[in-house]
Design a protein around this nucleic acid. Structure first.
Lengths: 263, 263
DNA sequence: TGCTGTGAAACAGTTCACAGCG
DNA sequence: CGCTGTGAACTGTTTCACAGCA
């Protein structure tokens, strides 16, 4: 996912699978909603539906945390909220800095969900001197020169990069050098970081491309179904059967690139 | 990931694994950069480094697309760009609508990478009548009332939801009813969609929580390493050996919750 | 009885390691 | 010789199905 070690190294630490960790926030959100409606207990089935997963997966996930349910009844909402929060480290306060206060950075700064769960925006940082001092989300933007000082003074260990792609790696290095060990990267670049630093990336354009892939496939299937075209390149049966031929014939360093589309 | 079917159903279509699809955009970006620098060929090793993956994985990924490389040489950059673009469906034009033109929606509208690869913002839609007509990213915001008409007139099949959480499900339903079959959801909600509609979600708060989890763990490890505590729960050997005991002892609806950290 | 917790099976994804081609 | 392409081993994840507890 990222350049360095995104997932924990060999160590495997304590045995909560990464896939489970990625779902805990989902459960937490659903539980928080239930908690606000003062629902006392919830079954794996109900909670799973609310979180958009299936109940077996949810139960398995929870089993990694311990046995927090009651057979024949379900889970105590408040108790689970606490346990998951603790597991995720949300019972403590995480100061974060946002670097790059353009459209996106401003959007992030204004994002409410940020503050809600243990995260606190410690500073907004931008390289543009004209931005310095300007208030965004009720907070003055600070200049990049202050970066190291800010990180240190606030004990920041999580940084959010919302700069243009060109600046991201450099900002990343300064963050890491200053002591940041977790980075959320919104810039469309692969960041390279030293061992021990976690990077997660959020990339709009990648998400769209994945959707386009599936969308194209749907269109292909529809066409095949409706028009009953003969041997479209996406046709399953044809591909399966001719896999080797395709592999062989598809070769060629340039010349024989199919006109535009496999027609 | 989403409520409905995020991954394709049983069909499995043609055999490109989902994990591979998710990496194709990464390769494409790296290749595009090489292409701009007029690099003619690239080895799996080089390209893998640029994309932030390992070379075996990259070769395996490409093997699903066909045999596009030359042994002893590497891959032809232009040719691969074309093949991956085609595979992702980026050789065609994808009109998208963005619904919810707040901070985030505006950021997305202004995001350049959007337009670059086959995606075209067909319309910006917002429920606030005061927004209607206001230009954002050189484009007038249109009112939600127009949603169905816009989708239809432009043949939009991909929608981006950047509304507040409360409005997301409703917007989603209108999009789907109007013919949208792929949705990129930025609202912190689980969307439920009918069979056949793909949803991908981007959720800042979830990403931060995952980082916090790892961050917390690091802090725990540091403490363990520095203080050289005896039988830390993080010790691999101990875990492996006592896995069952741990599972058993972890029980208890409240009382014996370990103090603060696995110490 | 109704639910959780969990082994065991099935599946998906990654890594290894090397055969084979240019 | 250097690199791709890929079976085979492995690791991680999901699903199944049911034993066992409240």
């Amino acid at each position: 996912m990222a350049t360095g070690r995104t997932h924990r190294p060999a160590t495997r630490s304590r045995g909560i699978p990464e896939a489970t960790v990625a779902r805990l926030p989902l459960y937490l959100r659903a539980l928080t909603a239930l908690s606000e409606r003062s629902v006392p207990t919830v079954s794996s089935e109900e909670l799973a539906t609310a979180a958009g997963v299936n109940s077996a997966k949810l139960r398995k996930d929870f089993s990694y945390l311990g046995s927090y349910g009651t057979r024949g009844v379900g889970y105590d909402v408040e108790y689970l909220v606490y346990q998951i929060s603790r597991e995720l480290g949300l019972t403590q306060d995480w100061p974060v800095v946002i670097v790059g206060i353009g459209n996106l950075g401003a959007a992030l700064a204004n994002y409410g969900g940020f503050a809600s769960r243990g995260f606190r925006v410690a500073a907004l940082i931008d390289a543009d001197p004209a931005m310095a001092g300007k208030p965004v989300a009720g907070m003055p933007v600070q200049h990049t020169d202050e970066l190291e000082k800010i990180i240190n003074d606030n004990g920041v260990s999580i940084g959010v990069i919302a700069t243009p792609a060109g600046a991201a790696q450099q900002v990343c290095e300064r963050l890491v050098a200053a002591g940041v060990t977790s980075i959320l990267n919104f810039a469309p670049t692969v960041l390279s970081v030293p061992e021990g630093v976690d990077v997660r990336k959020v990339d709009l354009s990648i998400e769209l491309q994945i959707l386009a892939f599936h969308e194209q496939r749907k269109a292909g299937e529809d066409a095949a179904a409706e028009a009953a075209l003969p041997a479209v390149a996406r046709d399953d049966a044809a591909i399966e059967a001719a896999a080797d031929d395709v592999a062989a014939s598809r070769k060629g360093p340039d010349g024989d690139v199919p006109a535009v589309m496999p027609a």
